[in-house]
Design a protein around this nucleic acid. Structure first.
Lengths: 233, 233
DNA sequence: ATTTATAATTTTTCGTACATTATTCTGACG
DNA sequence: CGTCAGAATAATGTACGAAAAATTATAAAT
């Protein structure tokens, strides 16, 4: 199983003082620096973040509450593996929540809101998938902008949490050419339907968009899995 | 996913050894023993659970990750207030997820499943709201039975977590007579539509059921709030 | 000689105790 | 009545010890 080696020098080590331990570990999990099922040894993490064990323990417990870290008694913490089923499940949860969040935005969007959406969209089109991490970030912004002022903070929180998980693996998976065109097209249609204040159209466009997106990620994961299985066994 | 498990009879001080600190505090929050916004002093809690501070700190951090406890830097933890907005928000999240969970059950329910539902329902009708806590528990069982074997563990986890929050305040709020009759009626209709394998009918019945339930709780909370405002200010 | 079982050693988690730092409370003084 | 110093309280970080798990070393058996 190896992986005994020290885990690739933690988060930048420079400005650790500013960002909290929790944020750092969380980021390391979502970015993939800490890989699936990796053991999270508290003393090791304590060294990496130049702190003692208690802050680490507490951060891990918080992440446990979020479901990003798994505990086994007397054996400590492991990184929650983000496998195909998990991604599919998370995507489907988002699929249930996102239309609900969108509705209010369509009904209340101002001209400035739409302008902002178009600005983000133009940036997405400008980089045109040349930088995957940046694309994922912009895509996240596009959606988040529409929901962040929703009155339902619980729904927004759940959505965001799951979106981050989804985004974390999106960056590690290729985006097919056909899917790239579809993403841009769907975003445009979404903006148009918001402009037209057409809630139903917006929701159905969104449904198509996120369903396709989820399916695409799962498909890519399936391909990856098949490949590595071919290599190993 | 935050295996809260069956809410173990918490802090009766006798069998604290068996149930975890986390379960105990969580139960105390949801049952209302620890009321909204109450400060959670770690040394105090440590005494109450005859333990040192570290287990308390970690439990609180885990609950923070779940959103049940709020932290302010250098000021420690407080019980997340379960006010009207929060309940409404939680209810609406459930409203988005529950139909999704129900669908699969309707499509796959066996004769035994339906029999079990009818058994729970008959018990609900038998006690006929004479014991509110028991009613809440049975009602929880009724719904949980339909979803607990759903393949999407994430969705089920989110639903359950939110259901527990909702249930925790349901017990503290009266159920109007009219609402009592409606609950029984709606459950019966739900069972009938499942028997008939009618997914659409089941979903729309459920929608009505949980929407009414949520609204009822929020209404009751509003009444409570108005009353206490009359007393205090 | 290789493999399996067992014992010793190391590592790691988890609870306790203590130190430090920030906040809150209290009472004297303007 | 407000404000400000100092004491009390509580959060946050560090250090240590005991118990459990993982690992390595050693012995026995085929």
């Amino acid at each position: 199983m190896s992986t005994a080696g020290p885990i690739a020098l933690a988060s930048d080590a420079a400005d650790v003082s500013q960002t909290s331990i929790y944020d750092a570990i969380r980021h390391d999990i979502l970015s993939g620096r800490l890989e699936a099922n990796a053991r999270l040894k508290i003393s090791e993490l304590a060294k990496q973040h130049n702190t003692s064990t208690n802050p680490i323990r507490e951060a891990l417990q918080q992440l446990r509450g979020e479901g990003l870290v798994l505990f086994t008694p007397n054996q400590g913490a492991r990184v929650r593996p983000i496998d195909m089923e998990f991604v599919r499940d998370v995507a489907e949860v988002g699929y249930q929540l996102e239309p609900y969040l969108l509705k209010l935005f369509v009904e209340t969007a101002s001209a400035e809101d739409i302008a902002e959406l178009e600005r983000i969209q133009s940036e997405i089109e400008a980089i045109n998938f040349s930088n995957k991490a940046r694309h994922t970030e912009l895509n996240h912004q596009f959606h988040e902008y529409m929901y962040e002022r929703h009155y339902n903070r619980v729904a927004f929180g759940v959505w965001k949490q799951h979106r981050e998980i989804l985004g974390s693996i999106s960056t590690r998976v290729p985006i097919a050419i056909g899917r790239q065109e579809a993403i841009i097209q769907e975003h445009r249609e979404l903006i148009d339907s918001i402009k037209a204040q057409d809630v139903n159209l917006a929701v159905s466009t969104l449904n198509r968009h996120i369903q396709d997106a989820g399916r695409h990620v799962v498909d890519q994961l399936r391909i990856n899995q098949t490949r590595s299985r071919g290599r190993n066994g």
